[in-house]
Write a protein that binds this DNA or RNA. Sequence first.
DNA 1: TTGTAAGCGTTATCAG
DNA 2: CTGATAACGCTTACAA
Lengths: 292, 292
Amino acid sequence: MEAVRSLGYEPNEVARSLRGGRTNLIGVIFPQIVNPYFSRCVQQIELETTRFGASVILLTHQEDPVKQSRQLEVLRRSQCDGVILTAAPNSDPVKLKRELGTMPVVALDRPIWDDGDVVMLQHRQAAREATLHLLEHGIKEIACATTDPNIYSFQERILGYEEVMRQAGQKSHVIVAGDYGALQDAVHASLLEPPRLGGLIALSNMATVSAMLAIREIHQIQPPKVALIGFDDVDLAILVEPAITVMVQPVDRMARETVNLLFRLIGSGRDLPPQRIMPEAELIRRNSCGCL
Amino acid sequence: MEAVRSLGYEPNEVARSLRGGRTNLIGVIFPQIVNPYFSRCVQQIELETTRFGASVILLTHQEDPVKQSRQLEVLRRSQCDGVILTAAPNSDPVKLKRELGTMPVVALDRPIWDDGDVVMLQHRQAAREATLHLLEHGIKEIACATTDPNIYSFQERILGYEEVMRQAGQKSHVIVAGDYGALQDAVHASLLEPPRLGGLIALSNMATVSAMLAIREIHQIQPPKVALIGFDDVDLAILVEPAITVMVQPVDRMARETVNLLFRLIGSGRDLPPQRIMPEAELIRRNSCGCL
DNA sequence: TTGTAAGCGTTATCAG
DNA sequence: CTGATAACGCTTACAA
């Protein structure tokens, strides 16, 4: 130990990994990280991973399954100990399973295959709750807005919304558009068409911003307010006027649980029964729904 | 090659790294990533790194130099090919140089030592420009607000602000508070004390939010408006009323240049003359400064 | 207790 | 041009 100190020796983790068959690296594949929902996930994953003496290799697939495939190959070849994956839409579960090889995986926010380990919100229930809340405000004509309807979480939320609307004997109206700006325009258009919408549920933080902007534009033409409930709290929710009512996910807790679950799999030879950790969203009542 | 395909052989990167002395891993150490400025940086770094066939190990030190030291140790032992570092405040340059060992490094947003490679905004000039802009609006009593004054970029911005104020024969007033909420309170208090402030420069995106909130509170008591210029554009800047005038950095370009510079160092045995890439900020004129 | 040897999967080198 | 061999730095197992 004295020699270690005096010579400044440091173990070579690469050689250790080759010999020991363990790299202490986990791969984290996300759609992107600029979205505050994802960056918070990544932040918590990084903090929690450190507690296991491991490091994070961060990759983003930009919702592209082809890129995702290449990235899984990188992780396989790097002998990653495990993977946290928020899969791209239209991923083939069978192909994914093959591409993961022997690496244990935990899905986050979106499931990968039916009986896999996953940590995600009760998306459908969250949308149900949001829709119900607007109905309870006496609003009947409610639309929901989302960017990419190929994404599991949004699909589920749409289903939850439609379900409640059906039960209430109301017609559903799903507004879909590829990106940020297009969604704003689409919402704008819907607000001008009959039936005159009284409420809007934005199914993601991106959609919430678009919806906010569209409502604001319209508001200068048609004074009667449109109630809004957003998804995924963002800083701006309390900054805008009116403050936005949102369904929030316990993001930090979910991210940490994901890491813990993954390391349990890594430790225990992966013969554990699959876990599905599905917390509920919380409705944060602010002004935009008409509560305050 | 036929055997490769039929047996499903895949090269083991760990063995390759051990043999070849190159891991195709770069370490990225940031203060955090929840801040949209940093998450955008990380996103671009990830995308650009892929183009060099390498991957990113992401670490965050939370502005703690002790954590940063541990993380550099991790990177050294992992035989990382290079490091991108936004150093924690109060980092000892000599110690840092030692801790980097043989790994080439490029500093981002904050320099590490005097003659090192660095990509960062012309912080001081940006603050000068913001201050000058408010003065040109005829505003004389201008304060600036920041969270952590130990951080290089904020220090520089304060200096730029003070410089212009001095030249204009005005007294400087720097509002400092540890965090988000405390800063909001501090700004709030300053707005109520004499001299009656006419303008405020928030030196970061966090500070911008705090300042916005404080101004809004005050505005209900003291109608005369306070002009605001923020730093680092955020989505919310256009969403709030009034839309916030900001100094924006060419974040994406800076992040990409950082990666390119690093791989030039990695490729060329590190005998290149140190580069300092220092772009200027751009003033985006919106409502909050009184322009529109 | 201390020391030696084998092997992890590559790649570069050197003989055949 | 093909094929065997050594070395990268570590850990583990076994021998002295």
